[in-house]
Amino acid sequence: MQSPHDDQDLTPNSPELLRKTDHILARIYPLLGEQGIRPNEVQQQMLASHVKAMVWRSYSGESLPDVDLSLFEEISSLSLRLAEQVVAWLDNLAYEEAHLLSVHFEVAKENELSSVLSQ
């Protein structure tokens, strides 16, 4: 992803990193869809923002602040497993990244349940 002459010029909004973000998102939606998880428009925007930040951290080596994993006890094993798959697609990310990403999947997973309950 990096070339020696433009290393210093990359930012989170560099075309190369935005393409990488789009590529990851294009892989996420079918992965979620296979499990019946369909993020709504707002959730898609929030997910895209998070994935963009993940791609940047993967490139820059920027670390996450300390994350208390006990805050994620309510996250389903499905959401965490899917998030771990996605995090594995990028290099240099902390284990905690999957927990943060899993929140997006868990919230989107609740969409289907909410629509069934409201009928």
Rank of each mutant, 00 (worst) to 15 (best):
F72W: 08
N92G: 13
N40C: 02
R38A: 08
H50E: 11
S60W: 12
R57S: 04
S77G: 05
L80P: 04
A94Y: 06
Q45A: 13
L64Q: 10
Y95W: 01
K52G: 09
Q44R: 15
I75R: 15
W56G: 12
V51L: 02
A94H: 14
V86M: 06
V55Y: 06
S60G: 06
D66V: 00
A94E: 15
E41K: 04
E84P: 02
I37G: 05
E84Q: 15
L90C: 08
S70W: 08
L69M: 10
Q85S: 11
A83S: 15
L64A: 09
P65A: 00
G33I: 02
L93H: 07
L80W: 03
S79L: 00
L90N: 09
D91K: 13
D68A: 12
K52C: 00
F72K: 11
E84D: 13
P65M: 03
E74L: 00
I37M: 02
G33A: 14
Q43G: 08
L90V: 05
H50L: 01
E84C: 01
V87Q: 06
A94M: 13
E74W: 03
L90W: 10
Q45T: 06
H50C: 04
V67F: 10
R57F: 01
S60I: 02
A83Y: 13
Q43R: 07
Y59Q: 13
N40G: 12
S58T: 03
S79C: 05
E41P: 01
G33V: 01
L47F: 06
V55N: 09
D91R: 10
S76V: 01
S60T: 11
Q85N: 11
E34Y: 08
Y59L: 06
V51A: 12
F72A: 06
L47G: 12
Q43Y: 10
V51P: 11
V55D: 11
L90M: 15
H50N: 12
Q43A: 07
N92M: 03
V51H: 12
L47V: 05
Q43D: 09
S49D: 14
K52Q: 15
L69T: 15
M54A: 04
Q85A: 05
D66A: 14
L93G: 04
I37R: 01
D91F: 07
S58Q: 05
P30Y: 05
W56S: 10
D68R: 14
G33Q: 13
P39E: 09
W89S: 02
E73W: 01
M54I: 00
A88V: 08
M54T: 02
V86F: 10
M46K: 14
Q44H: 14
A53E: 04
M46Y: 12
L69Y: 09
S76A: 02
K52H: 14
G36R: 11
V51Y: 12
G33T: 07
A83H: 10
Q35P: 01
V51M: 04
G33W: 02
